[in-house]
Amino acid sequence: MVKKLLFICALFCVIVTLGIVFLLLEEAVGFFQQVSIKEFLLGTNWAPMFEPRSFGVLPLVCGTFWVTFGAALIGLPTGLGIGLFLNDFAPSWLRNLVKPVLEILAGIPTVVYGYFALTVITPWLQNLLPSVEVFNAASAAIVVGLMVLPMVASLCDDAIKAVPRSVKEAGYALGATKSEVATQVTIPSALSGIIASFILALSRAFGETMAVTLAAGSTPKITLNPFESVQTLTAYIVQVSTGDTPQGSIEYKSIFAVGILLLAVSLLFNMLAFYLVKKYRTVGE
């Protein structure tokens, strides 16, 4: 009885996944009947609403790239640093303070992060550099970096905690300082967990929607300037699905094509994580 019940639970998750993929594919097929895959993937102009319409997705990819890249730049090293600090350097009272703060940080709704970007980070950036636009990729990147930070810190903390004490002691017994042990023994030993946390964070930043929709704006463009307004893949989907786009129109269908792209890249991230984790698994039996 219990076995059957549990089987149904497991089956449920498979069915939902398949259903989502099927829905995405079905609508996207309609889209790709009108726009070639080549035009979609390699086109440099994204103008789905106005004539002449153009469905080159690269401007959205560019916006997403800026946000993901910037978030990684901020979130990954800081998260790793926090994990290392909590394990090997922090006195226990500080650890007991930082851990719950990280959990609170992880529990803040993403829309609040978006507000924070708009009302705090962007004005702060504008203060530093007056040419910064109200909506800009940098502000979104910073806030997404903060958003993934607790996850990276917590996963790195776990990975580092799993490094056997005996291996660190071996380092100390050879006359290594704390920082030599931390950087040359602990981190390499925890590498597989650290990499996994990084890729999960990238994947999360890549798919993040609410905060970037609020902070990065809705101007699809290819730009080298992170202080300009851009549009990410996810923000485009929000824009279309909250607008009055008629169902069945080409721009309606386009969000499924974008959705497929998001799904494919996320899948790629996960596979990469799986592969790297296996490759660098060095600790444990």
Partner: peptide, 9 residues
């Protein structure tokens, strides 16, 4: 040490 603890390298 008690348990062999070579570095994972």
């Amino acid at each position: 040490f008690q348990k062999p603890n070579p570095f994972p390298t």
